[in-house]
Design a protein around this nucleic acid. Structure first.
Length: 708
RNA sequence: GGUCGCAUAGCUCAGCUGGAUAGAGCACCUGCCUUCUAAGCAGGCGGUCCCAGGUUCGAAUCCUGGUGCGAUCACCA
């Protein structure tokens, strides 16, 4: 029985004896520093059962406890708070248990432990990992470790998004655009000596560039033709754009694309201020088709505006100076949308996707080759970051899953079929929308895949729950997914958790790979390591370390700073990451905690005497008492962190522990004291603190150094 | 517009199921290395806990309404 349980029982006894009333719950809290005592009973809630003065009641209970509980040494009452002073003996006994528990804080798992799968990372294979993935990886890994420590059997997994149009883009770009060597061989990550994920990522960017180039070419050509057609029609006094364009040399598909763009432009954004236009009847371009003389000039100017923005945009002229940003954005979006599907290189990528789905040998071989490059690159980043997986799932294996379940769901009446053959679920009763689960042509959507994959995982690992580490932009998706699985009647669907986390933003806003504002994972790790090195060298405390050991240490510290910086924040809050200011190494940081650990190791190296023996009776220093209290909290913190899926709780706990220790360290001598018992106890205490730091940091995936 | 999340010191963040005078770090200021590692310690400065109501003996915390920021509302993943 722990002290809180003992006190609960005895407080109940006291109230019963003194007032013959019973209370349902005794509320405890840690005693605030400014008052004497270790644990505090809050008297106020008891006044509901016992009508009396809180101070009087507190005194009475205090007296009873002091007489009947050996651990209670003394007490005082302030307002409605009964502050209890516990005996040194109690703390010593408690400490001796902690000290000898090599697994302190964790619950051992056995075959009856709950089995949970934690998914995290889940990258696309078309680009390298970035800062966003780092938060995801650190959170997922840490939560997995915390769940383990809390007594669950945990399987870590990732689903690799290895299929789809994105990877086909890189493939097309490499196949068609990469330079060849003397022997006619295409360049490879090996020939370039760069990481495979970076290599493939370059080709993804190359695709995008080529795509834009081709789009510009097409649009430029169209613009020229339109302009000349228009000029001709104006010369002829025919203000009929429709006819003019129709008669130009623009091919049918481009003509359609332009027609759609212009229509949509005028259709849902009345940026032309001339109100008259609005009232005109239109279909396609016909609304500009008008012969009323007085309006011709206005119509002409509106038309010109569209064509000009259109032209300037794609002929790289100065649209920005002449038109509002809103107009430009609108025109651009429309053109991108309507012209995208006529750009040759994109058509090529789409063709490749079809070939891939049909199992075309060459395409599949190319796909395998390029994905392997990416996997090798990821593997390296994961290793550097110190995260791992028990099982990899690949989207190429799972993207067809879930379709059969849809049939079951149809039979059960969970889903329904629309006239066009598509299958939906109606979640309006739950305050959500209708959601599609199968397209009219019978192909799966994202949701279908996730349903199928979840079921597959339960089959594979006999798990009773899952944690999905995915950004909060997908909150809605997971809400729906979990609800569908529940409606399908899976018992385990009640133990699904979306570990939703906030985005990592830069001072410039969101990270965008296209705009090159992405913080690359490998680069960031390298930079942190470099900073750690600079600080270490400046402090110069690494005598006796080999170069190799130093390198390893810099990495430990650099990663420690980065990981702690990210994990100490509540997962659901967004993080603003400023690369300029970098990550701190002082104060509430990873290195501060690592430093404290290293300090203790230094003491232990110097403590060459035998300090194994338990100390049975001892007069505790105030700082020692505080430290033991802090140590006692650890197991509870682990449970809480698991329940809340929050590494931040572990980070904050560790910081408090370390702060307490440093205060002790700087105010109390450890090896310098004469009294042998005192010396032994203090070394034991330091060692136990170090072990707890190490255990806690293991839950965060952070290493601790022996010296720094 | 509907839904979800966030809002605490100049900045970055804690604050557990409601409890005492709201806490850390950074920054700024003062002290402390002839004693176990100064990436440290001791102290100072700094608050309309977004606003307004409500519940309660008691609200940063719970409820309602509002404001601001973000996300989401695709037969994309």
């Amino acid at each position: 029985m722990n002290i809180q349980e003992t006190l609960t029982q005895k407080v109940n006894e006291a109230v019963e004896k003194l007032h013959s009333a019973s209370i349902d719950h005794v509320e405890f809290q840690a005693t605030r520093k400014e008052f004497a005592g270790d644990i505090t009973v809050v008297i106020f809630p008891m006044l509901r059962q016992v009508k009396t003065n809180p101070v009087v009641l507190g005194e009475a209970i205090g007296n009873y406890l002091k007489e009947n509980v050996t651990e209670v040494a003394d007490f005082n009452v302030v307002k409605g708070f009964l502050n209890i002073v516990l005996s040194d003996n109690y703390f010593l006994k408690s400490f001796n248990n902690i000290k000898d528990d090599t697994n302190y804080g964790s619950i051992k798992t056995d075959e009856n432990s709950p089995k949970i799968m934690v998914e995290y990372s889940s990258p696309n294979t078309n680009k390298p990992l970035h800062l966003g993935h780092i938060r995801n990886n650190l959170l997922g890994y840490s939560v997995a470790e915390i769940l383990k420590a809390a007594g669950n059997t945990v399987y870590k997994t990732q689903i690799i998004n290895d299929r789809g149009i994105h990877i086909c883009k890189s493939m097309v770009a490499w196949r068609d655009l990469s330079p060849r060597d003397k022997n006619g061989e295409r360049e490879t990550p090996q020939s370039r000596n760069i990481k495979g994920d970076k290599f493939v990522g370059e080709y993804y960017v190359k695709f995008d560039k080529e795509f834009k180039y081709q789009l510009n070419e097409i649009i430029g050509d169209v613009v020229n033709k339109i302009n000349s057609a228009l000029n001709k029609s104006i010369e002829n006094q025919e203000f009929n754009i429709y006819k003019a364009i129709k008669n130009s040399e623009i091919s049918e598909e481009y003509f359609d694309a332009i027609g759609k763009s212009v229509k949509e432009f005028y259709g849902f954004d009345n940026l032309i201020s001339e109100k008259e236009i609005e009232s005109l009847p239109y279909s396609n371009l016909d609304y500009i088709f008008i012969e009323q003389g007085e309006k011709i000039e206005k119509i002409k100017s509106s038309r010109d505006k569209f064509v000009e923005i259109f032209g300037d945009l794609y002929l790289n002229k100065s649209a920005k100076e002449k038109f509002s940003e809103k107009d430009i954005r609108k025109v651009k979006a429309l053109l991108d949308k309507n012209f995208t599907n006529v750009v040759p290189i994109l058509l090529e990528a789409q063709k490749m996707l079809q070939l891939w789905e049909a199992g075309d040998e060459d395409v599949v071989a190319l796909w395998k080759k390029m994905n392997q490059w990416v996997y090798d690159g990821f593997k390296e980043t994961y290793r550097e970051l110190g995260v791992d997986f028990d099982k990899n799932y690949y989207e190429s294996d799972t993207y067809l899953l879930g379709k059969e379940v849809v049939n079951d769901g149809l039979e059960k009446g969970v889903f329904y079929r629309k006239e066009d053959g598509s299958v939906w679920i109606d979640l309006t009763d739950e305050g959500l929308d209708e959601k599609i689960v199968l397209r009219a042509d019978g192909t799966a959507v994202y949701m279908t895949q996730d349903i199928g994959t979840a079921i597959q995982r339960v089959k594979d690992f006999d798990i009773n729950g899952m944690v999905y580490t995915v950004g909060n932009e997908q909150d809605y998706h997971f809400k729906v997914l979990f609800l569908i699985l529940k409606k399908l009647g899976f018992e385990w669907a009640n133990h699904l958790y979306h570990l939703s986390y906030g985005m990592v933003d830069l001072p410039s806003g969101k990270m965008k790979s296209r705009e090159g504002t992405v913080v690359d994972a490998d680069d960031l790790i390298k930079e942190m390591t470099k900073t750690a090195q600079e600080i270490s060298e400046e402090l110069g405390k690494l005598d006796g370390y080999t170069e190799e050991e130093k390198e390893k240490l810099y990495k430990t510290i650099g990663l420690g700073a980065l990981k702690y910086y990210i994990l100490k924040v509540d997962p659901k809050k967004r993080i603003l990451f400023n690369p300029e200011e970098s990550v701190d190494f002082q104060g509430n940081t990873g290195p501060f905690i690592q430093y404290t650990y290293a300090r203790i190791q230094s003491i232990l190296r110097k403590a060459t005497f035998n300090y194994q023996e338990d100390i049975q009776s001892y007069n505790l220093h105030e700082k020692e008492r505080e430290l033991i209290k802090q140590l006692q909290l650890f197991p509870e913190q682990v449970q809480q962190a698991a329940a809340q899926h929050s590494p931040a709780l572990i980070a904050n706990y560790t910081y408090d522990l370390v702060k307490e220790f440093n205060s002790f360290y700087q105010n109390v001598s450890i090896l310098g004291v004469d009294n042998q018992e005192e010396k032994i106890f203090r070394v034991q205490l330091a060692k136990t603190v170090a072990n707890t730091i190490k255990s806690a940091f293991e839950l965060l995936g952070i290493d601790v150094p022996e010296q720094m």
